[in-house]
Amino acid sequence: MKENRLVIALSILVAVLFIMSLWVGRNPLAIWQAAQALDSESVGSIILMEIRLPRALIALFAGATLGLCGAAMQGLLRNPLASPDLIGSSSGAALCAVIVLYFGFTTSASLPLLPVAGMVGALLATLLVFILAGRDSSISTLILAGVAINTLATAGMALLLNLAPSPYAMRELVLWTMGDLTDRSMDDFYLMLPFTVLGWALLIGVGRQLSALTLGESTAQTLGINPQRLRWRIFLAVALAVGATVSTTGVIGFIGLIIPHLLRPWVGYDAGRLLGVSALGGAALLLAADIGVRLIPTEMPLKVGVLTAIVGAPFFLHLILSARKQHL
């Protein structure tokens, strides 16, 4: 009952934020009028359909992906500090996306390569962290391995963007490391959509298996779960969804960390039931942060990752402190 109410509340929140996201922008826009005039080629309807709608849709899908993948990884690793951005999946995706976007692949026909590259990068970075940290690694080893991979990927991006032929490339480093949703088109959304949805689809039905992992891998196995197959399935799903998302938005930090952690008590700490609500929560947080960066008056547009990091980093510290207390 409590859970159903949570799902309803989060859904309403996401819907309200989605509509607000369509409404907020540099130009005042009566969206109802614009929506009614959809057929006409009015300025209002074009701004609504071609600029604000893709932005809101990308925020919705990217946020949901980050929340969902954070919950899946935390459940898989039975570790509240695991998330795609902390363990390197996101930065690996961004690095490969940078390679494809800035070097040689300038025709629009090769654009579908972008989410594929993001996926490959996310998968490689995730596997590398696991090889570095070992399978049954402690929280600190995993985070240190993630820090190493993140630093390496960011340095790689800086190097590549410096070497890129485009004179604008270097300035876009912040876009990849902080994340950004401005001025994306429906084309960008359609590009990220199939891989994102494929990643989500791979996660259908893993909820119960993640719940069983609460009892450890061996006991979960005697409950009919194949932990090895589950691990690969989640890695692949995260690579697909996060890879496609990051290659569109850049690395938006902390959503995958905060959201599952905040919502976990609401679903009775059940790793399986956490998945769906984390997707809703992630979507709500990213939509809200993206509205926030548009409302804060700055000279140059603020990157959305700046806001999520300002909220997320202190939260991360809090998590580390409470984890330390438990281990003392």
């Binding site: 039975r78 992992l213 609460t214 009892l215 450890g216 006991t219 976990r264 700490y269 059940d270 790793a271």
Partner: peptide
């Protein structure tokens, strides 16, 4: 045996 998340006793038993 391990218990990785702070589930209630009832929920944990129901995993069976």
């Amino acid at each position: 045996g391990a218990i990785h998340w702070p589930l209630t006793v009832e929920r944990l038993v129901a995993l069976g």
